[in-house]
Every structure is written in structure tokens, then in C-alpha cells.
Design a protein around this nucleic acid. Structure first.
Lengths: 252, 252
DNA sequence: ATTACTAATACACGAGTAA
DNA sequence: TTTACTCGTGTATTAGTAA
């Protein structure tokens, strides 16, 4: 009830741990590097024990993978860790750069099956109508993201978004998700009333993006498998507006 | 002895407090905005009490100015606070952008008096010779920074730098400082062996930069008061090399 | 509704130690 | 040297309350 809301991706990371992760990234880039707890502790103004604990925390959070050897340890920032860092980076970009926009690129791909099943379930469908203001076409447009875009999708975490709550079905629980308002651009044509729906409990290394809209996007923009598309995520800062709090009020 | 080294400007800020500062900036920009502890606590995944304490901490650190009223409080991020945020931002830029360079602009201004006095003091002069590798010309070139550059100088905090330790004079203590390797560009000409010397205990809203070099820069680059100059700070990440630790070893 | 105090508690930290 | 354990201590946190 009063737990972290769905869109608070940045808040679920201990700031101290994130600082440690940032320093790991700064010393060795995001690929594997040797890190000593003493050096890390020095930079974090903490003891070697604390530095050690930070790395353990990061590992159990899935942000780094470690290889502890006798004279140190090899640390590699995972995709989830990079996503967390990029989310933080995006926050700062929004602070200091006036025109921050997140544009993800990819190509249309098949797979309207699974998405169609989920979004038509009443527990989700009701929330779409209430919170997005429309009944989505019963099917998703899946976009295969480019490698660059897969990395950058971590920046979505700081963006204004509509939370979709988890709900209990007859036999199982259906997880929470987040809907990001996007503009779909294909072949110069723009389609505005689109949302990217991202499950909250997801593998952050996912290379696909699922889009929903009032209409069938394949028809509206004359899309076929393999067509290149651009997904522009609305740059509004999450912090600018009531956001999830308003939805909670609405739901209560 | 084992306290925080001079260049660890980022480490002297509690990461949790910085996160709070970032969120204040995100909701209201850097100018005055109304913030409620409840909303801030929500976003930080903490209680309202903790949010309140964070704001008090930020205030006593000089990072925000507050105006507590009956139904909330008006918070304004100070220049020092913005500098701290920019330093963090610069760290993330260095993580994700390959070519980050910090170029500060300004104009040559008078005032070789005060700087000359300080840099010729033996306690400093010795360190310059040992750590910078040259005896500075006995005088500083002062640069009046542009408004934009005054804001951006906070980014220097993350840059590789040479620490200058505090020392005890006969009657007073002389404070620690940090020397940043820079390239001075004037009228197309470049002069490489220059260092910007920044006192560690400084008013972060300082709009001047003091430069030292082996030669008299006014002669070397034919500079007069008011001439426009560019100060390019070496983009090397502080984290890439031993840095202050090596100096400690050297000094021991 | 706010902010912020005080008091009880939990948790994070660093010292010491073992591997 | 490393990493990381346990353990005592201290600080940060939250609950409750006042203004």
C-alpha cells in the first residue's frame, strides 16, 4: 500500500550502493576490471569492510558480477547495473540539459500473441481504460531494439509514466507494469497516442519493447515485420507532476 | 593523515543527501520551489522525518537555502549545491560519453598581487616543485569566468588533479588546495604547462580562476586585461590513476 | 495539512580476526 | 597482501508528539 510505487525505479537502489557502482564504472569502464576494497573504500570515504559489503550488496542486487581471487576481485557491471547508472545519468541530464529526449530505435517484429493475451485480461484492461484513457487495440506491436537502444532503455526509469498495478487472477498473480507515453515514428509518419508497456519485474537486458495504442498500429502506419521504427519517449520528468500519487488517490 | 584527500570533492557529500538534492532539483529546477517532506520522503523511500532531516543537512551544508512556512517550505539550491550536482553529473558524463572535456571561458583580469604572495610562500612553493614538476612564475594569471563557466566549474571536482596540502606557517595555517592541469588557449595559441589552483575551502560561487605556470603567461601569450581566454581542463578521470594515493606515498 | 523535536530501536559501520 | 566474517558500538532512522 505505502510501498515504493511502480515507477520509482531510481528509489529502489541504495544511494550509497549506487555511488559504489558509479566508482566501479569510473575506474574500469563497464567491462571487467580489478577492484580492491581498500581503493574503493578510500574513494567512498569508508572502511574496506564497508567497501566489501557494498560490492556484496551490488552483487546480490544483480548489478555486478564478481570473481573474487586471492589478491583482489574482478568486477563486471551487469546490464541491470548499467541500466541503473543510466537511469541516474538521465536524471542529471534532465537537470542540466534543456532538451533531453529519449529516442529508441528498432524494427517491427512478430509476436502479437503473448502480448494480446495479457492486455485483454480484465485486470489490466480496466486499468488501461482508466489510466491511459483508451481501450487498447487487443494486441501489441513488438519492436526489436537496436543494441544501442537496448543499452539506453535504462533511461526510461526516470521518465514520467503511468503505473499499472498487479492484480490477483483466479489462479495466479499478474504482475505490475509501467506505461510510458511515446510517439511512434515510422517512415516520417508520427503516431502519438501510443504507450510502451514494460513489466516491472523484468529482465533489464530485454531487447524488445511492447507498444499498445487505441488502434492497430500495423494498419495505422502501414507497418510490416522488419520495418524500422523510432520510439520517442515523452521527455517529461517524472518529478514534475503528481504522478503515481495521483493515481493512488484516484484508486482509493 | 588518513582523512579524505584534497581532491575527493565528491566523497565529502553524503550520497543520500545528494540524492535528496537531486530530487529537489528535479521537481523545481534550481530556483526556488515548494517542497513537502512527505513527497520527498516518498521519492527517497524514507519517512517524512528523514526527508526533513535531509533538507536540514543540505541546508547546514550550504547546498540549499530554505524558507519554512506553515504549509511546507520553499527550497532553493545554492551555487554550492549546484556545483555538487554538476560534479556528479560530470562523473556520469565521463561514464557514458567518450569525449568529455571541460572548457571554461573568461577574460584576463588584474590581481597578481594576492596570488603572488601566496604561491611564493615556501610551504606552497615546495609542493609545486615536487608535485607539478616546475617552479611557478611568482604570480598568478586571474581569469574572470563567464556566467556559464562559473556554473560549469563544479564539474572540475571529478577531474584528475594534484592535491596541495595545508601547512603550518609561523603564525597561521595555510589551507589546502587543488591543482588542475589545464591548457590555456588565447587567440588560437595554446599553452600547455598550466595549472589552475583552487583553494579547497572556497566559496564555490567564485567567479575567478587562478592560473600558474612556469613562465609569465601574460608574456608567453601576449595577454592584456580583458583578453578572452579559454581554459581547457584535462579530461582525465580522477579514478583512472592512483592520484592522491600516489602522492601520499611519495610524501611519506 | 505542514515541520521538527524527542525517545526507542534498528541498522549500518568499523575493529578485530580468520581464511 | 587480499576478502569477508563476527561482534560491539554508534549513528541514522522511525514512531510518536508538539507546534
Amino acid at each position: 500500500m505505502s510501498d515504493a510505487t511502480a515507477t520509482d525505479a531510481a528509489a529502489d537502489v541504495d544511494p550509497a550502493a549506487l555511488a559504489a557502482l558509479k566508482h566501479v564504472g569510473l575506474v574500469g569502464g563497464l567491462s571487467e576490471t580489478k577492484v580492491s576494497c581498500a581503493a574503493l573504500g578510500d574513494r567512498l570515504d569508508a572502511s574496506t569492510q564497508t567497501a566489501s559489503r557494498r560490492l556484496q550488496t551490488l552483487e546480490s542486487a544483480g548489478y555486478v558480477e564478481r570473481d573474487v581471487v586471492s589478491d583482489g576481485q574482478w568486477v563486471r557491471v551487469t546490464d541491470a547495473g548499467e541500466a541503473a547508472l543510466r537511469a541516474e545519468y538521465a536524471d542529471y541530464r534532465r537537470l542540466f540539459e534543456s532538451d533531453v529526449e529519449l529516442s529508441l530505435r528498432g524494427s517491427v517484429t512478430g509476436g502479437m500473441g503473448e502480448g494480446r493475451h495479457y492486455i485483454t485480461l480484465p485486470g489490466y484492461a480496466e486499468q488501461f481504460r482508466e489510466r491511459l484513457g483508451y481501450d487498447p487495440f487487443p494486441g501489441t506491436l513488438n519492436v526489436d531494439l537496436t543494441e544501442e537502444s537496448v543499452r539506453r532503455r535504462g533511461e526510461m526509469a526516470g521518465i514520467d509514466a503511468v503505473p499499472i498495478d498487479a492484480w490477483e487472477g483466479e489462479d495466479r498473480t499478474y504482475g505490475a507494469a509501467t506505461c510510458y507515453g511515446v510517439t511512434l515514428v515510422a517512415d516520417g509518419e508520427r503516431y502519438e497516442a501510443v504507450h510502451a508497456i514494460v513489466p516491472d519485474r523484468t529482465h533489464h537486458d530485454d531487447d524488445q519493447l511492447e507498444l499498445i495504442a487505441p488502434d492497430r498500429l500495423r494498419d495505422a502506419l502501414d507497418l510490416a515485420d522488419g520495418d524500422a521504427v523510432e520510439v520517442r519517449v515523452e521527455p517529461t520528468s517524472r518529478a514534475d507532476e503528481p504522478g503515481s500519487a495521483a493515481v493512488e488517490t484516484e484508486a482509493a
